[in-house]
Design a protein around this nucleic acid. Structure first.
Lengths: 111, 111
DNA sequence: TCCGACGTACGACGTACGTCGTATAAGCTG
DNA sequence: CAGCTTATACGACGTACGTCGTACGTCGGA
């Protein structure tokens, strides 16, 4: 759902990405679920993520991830599609996201 | 400075370490400086870290790192010595800390 | 054209965080 | 013992965070 009462969808440039912002963005279970979901499913509308929070809360988490450079969002008709910025993240922080995600998967499998 | 008016120095067990806690612990510049310093210098007393915060603030950051399992502290006489729990972290989160630290070093070098 | 679906904006709420100053305790040194 | 050093405990402060309900704008289908 395109602009007007919604803010412009700004994505940080590659060189602007900050590691500490990334770590903070990933240090939340809901956001980690979003990232894990995106890792398997290329692109998704906001409402289709397996998280258990209110829609407005979800919007908040998407903003945190977007501003940290983790995801990219685009509008199409009534929907906002979200993708992982995998290439950008790997260019800026080589191997880091995979390392974090694999570690997290392992931790989830243990528990 | 051993116990009495100070809390007992508790360190979480290996299996208790949580990735999200770790990410949160690392998502702070002061704490990252502490970790980087410990990486080069095996063991250090609290007061010898190149950080620019009040002593009580430093104590707070040490607690966060300790409770996340990043550091270990022991008392000797008047001093509290701090080390990185490198082996434990690598056992629980293989390669992750190195990945984060190297990425951070690269980011610092760029800026 | 109207209505439901989608997702956001905004404001509120309680909690956690990073920061500090001050007080305090224990060890070291004279 | 007295005084300095080391580091913490405690309380305070402002800010940021995660959460939600409500209101609203846009799109698509009946």
């Amino acid at each position: 759902m395109p602009r007007s009462h919604r803010r412009v969808l700004t994505h940080p440039d590659l060189v602007e990405l900050d590691l500490l912002d990334l770590l903070h963005a990933l240090a939340d279970p809901t956001r980690m679920t979003i990232v894990r979901t995106l890792r398997s499913d290329v692109e998704r509308p906001c409402g289709t993520f397996p998280v258990d929070v209110a829609p407005s809360t979800l919007t908040h988490h998407f903003r945190v991830l977007r501003e940290a450079g983790v995801i990219r969002q685009r509008d199409e008709g009534n929907r906002r599609w979200t993708t992982l910025r995998l290439d950008d993240l790997n260019a800026r922080f080589p191997g880091l996201l995979d390392s974090v995600l694999e570690t997290y998967e392992r931790q989830l499998a243990e528990a």
